[in-house]
Amino acid sequence: MQSFSWLPEVNRLYGFQITENKIRPFGDGHIHQTFLIDWEDKKFILQRFNHQVFQFPERISHNHDILIREIDPEKLPFILPLPIPNMHGELFSVIDGQYFRLAPFVEGKCVNEVDYPHQAYLAAKAFAQFIVAGIHIKASLLQESIPNFHDLQLRYQQLLQSVSSTQRQVKGELKELVDFYLDQKKLVEEYALWKSKLPLRMTHSDTKINNLIYADDFSKVNAVIDLDTIMAGYVFYDFGDLVRTVACTEGESSQNWENIKVDMPKYAALLKGFQEVGEGAFTKEEIQSLPYGGQMMTCIMGFRFLADYLNGNVYYTIHYEEQNLHRAKNQMFLLKALQRI
């Protein structure tokens, strides 16, 4: 039986009179506990925030406050459902040691994969428009909600450490994977080169397709959501994560190795969306860096999956012992395919 012992305090802090029958669980998110609330003629999303995963909620509030102050919602073709301040003006409400936040509910469809290139194009446009909307914001003002999240150089060093300290026998299939990923030194060096050339921007930093809400008929994007990972980053981060998750012919847990390829129509649609929005806003070097982003983000996930397997599967949820090994192998095939483009 669901306990809503926190409800009276939520009502007090937000000026509601919500009853338990107006609350129901919502979505299939794995990090935060999410509820849909009906109050008078409006709907809201209430989240019990997992501050074990995001250990710096004050940094997220800081970044969201910048967005609230600096981004004009009238200049965006979609909604940013940012947290609603409570009666004290705070974006998080702490109740019995737990963090809660309230946000407007946005109608539409949230999907885990796209079926057509045009849907990929709309996704790329939306995430690029988000970056452009905040291009005037000094990226150094943003705080790291997850430190070193996309630092390829650090992830490479972590993989090296995992290889040297693992209790597993590095032979056979595991040795092939270790050798492949350690041979990506050139990609790591290219990362350092792009960092020296490119400006830091406000990036979404987790551009999965399910972090968008489409219109019911998929004619447009209604909202860009899951804004907890907003940080200073590079444009190729957001493009690259889209490529990794949208333009692959198989999901990241697939073992259909021979079927893991780049879906070129979707890849071209993603590139078109970013280039169209970025023209005149992004630098020439930022546009040139986009194809590298797909390789880099695929490689970094391969590093992370493989390191986790070597460390004894301590970070990612697995359903069988070799799943992180297979995820790393999956990303290897995708990276090889991207490197052939």
Rank of each mutant, 00 (worst) to 15 (best):
I23F: 13
F26G: 01
G29V: 06
G29I: 13
H30Y: 12
H32M: 07
H32L: 09
T34P: 03
I37Q: 01
E40P: 00
D41E: 13
K43Y: 04
F44N: 04
L46V: 01
L46C: 07
Q47K: 08
R48I: 12
Q52D: 12
E58R: 12
E58T: 11
I60W: 07
I60C: 04
S61H: 01
N63R: 05
H64G: 05
D65Y: 09
L67G: 00
L67I: 00
R69D: 15
D72R: 10
P73E: 10
P73H: 01
E74R: 13
K75V: 00
P77Y: 04
P77R: 08
I79V: 15
L80M: 04
P81H: 04
P83G: 05
P83W: 14
I84R: 00
M87D: 12
F92A: 02
I95Y: 06
D96M: 10
F100Q: 04
L102K: 02
P104C: 03
V106Q: 09
E107L: 09
G108E: 08
N112D: 07
E113T: 09
E113S: 11
Y116C: 07
A120F: 01
A120S: 14
A120H: 13
Y121T: 00
L122G: 01
A123M: 07
F127Y: 14
I131E: 13
I135A: 03
A139V: 06
E144C: 08
I146V: 15
I146H: 14
